[in-house]
């Protein structure tokens, strides 16, 4: 369960009694405590509106907490220079958010070029990353995002997030909008890739299958709180009602329209 604060040296990201609300409305995040350890993949699982995306956006300071602190590498996000923090944090979102006026290589090389790497180094890095995400640089480097399929775009999105070799990767339903076959192959490849790279990943999804497949630990969220925090092995054995409801969707045979 959630660790006592301050004594976990392994934590790359820590939430300390964090709340977030907009203009004094109902809390979207409600007194949240959470430590994300170095090198683990923490999956935030929950229905839409449960606060999982907001939790993610608090980490790279797209949002700031209305109460409590979010610590990254031991330092509160509000004390970070937000530009520095974001360049050290990879970010992948559902529809990739690639720049339509940038080529694939330019999209991948975005953060390195913001960091003023030399053009040679940027080029080498973006080739390397395209190969890593399974796109042939010779074929794809000079294409534009509109010339790619959804799965290819998402691969570029992952490559872009990894470009400056950030220790932390935030992923907001990165495979949510893909067709099932593409999604399955990307999940598999990503799972292998992260094992090799050793990044710390915070991953948001509403797909329990995806959570079980990728997570070191699963944080089940409901109405701004973490209701369950377990490893996948313990998660499937949990008696928690919400967790059981999620798990039941896995075993149910599909209803066939029209009947027989």
């Amino acid at each position: 369960m959630s660790q006592a604060s301050g004594d976990n040296d392994d934590a790359l990201v820590s939430f300390r009694d964090v709340s977030f609300r907009i203009n004094g409305g109902l809390p979207i995040i409600d007194h949240l405590d959470l430590d994300v350890a170095q090198g683990e993949t923490l999956v935030l699982l929950g229905e839409s509106g449960c606060g999982k995306t907001t939790t993610l956006r608090l980490v790279n300071r797209l949002l700031t907490p209305t109460a409590g602190d979010v610590l990254v590498e031991g330092k509160a996000t509000i004390e970070w220079d937000s530009i520095r923090l974001r360049r050290r944090t990879g970010y992948v979102i559902q529809d990739a958010g690639l720049f339509p006026h940038f080529s694939v290589a330019e999209n991948v090389g975005l953060v390195p070029s913001l960091e003023r790497w030399t053009p040679d180094r940027i080029q080498r890095r973006s080739r390397e990353l395209l190969e890593l995400v399974g796109l042939d640089p010779a074929q794809f480097a000079n294409r534009y995002p509109r010339e790619l399929s959804g799965g290819q775009r998402q691969r570029v999105g992952v490559a872009r997030a990894l470009a400056a070799d950030p220790p932390l990767l935030l992923m907001d339903e990165p495979f949510g909008a893909l067709d099932p076959l593409t999604r399955a192959s990307l999940q598999k490849e990503f799972s292998e890739m992260k094992a090799r790279l050793g990044k710390t990943v915070i991953f948001v999804t509403h797909d329990v299958r995806e959570a079980l497949m990728l997570a070191s630990r699963i944080a089940l969220m409901d109405r701004g709180k973490i209701v369950l925090l377990e490893s996948p092995a313990d998660f499937v054995k949990s008696a928690n009602k919400l967790a059981r409801a999620y798990l039941e969707t896995l075993s149910e045979p599909p209803a066939v329209a029209g009947g027989l």
């Binding site: 974001r86 360049r87 970010y91 958010g97 975005l110 913001l114």
Partner: peptide, 10 residues
């Protein structure tokens, strides 16, 4: 998503 990505990339 493009604007959000731009901000999130730093």
């Amino acid at each position: 998503s493009v604007r959000e990505a731009a901000v999130a990339m730093g």
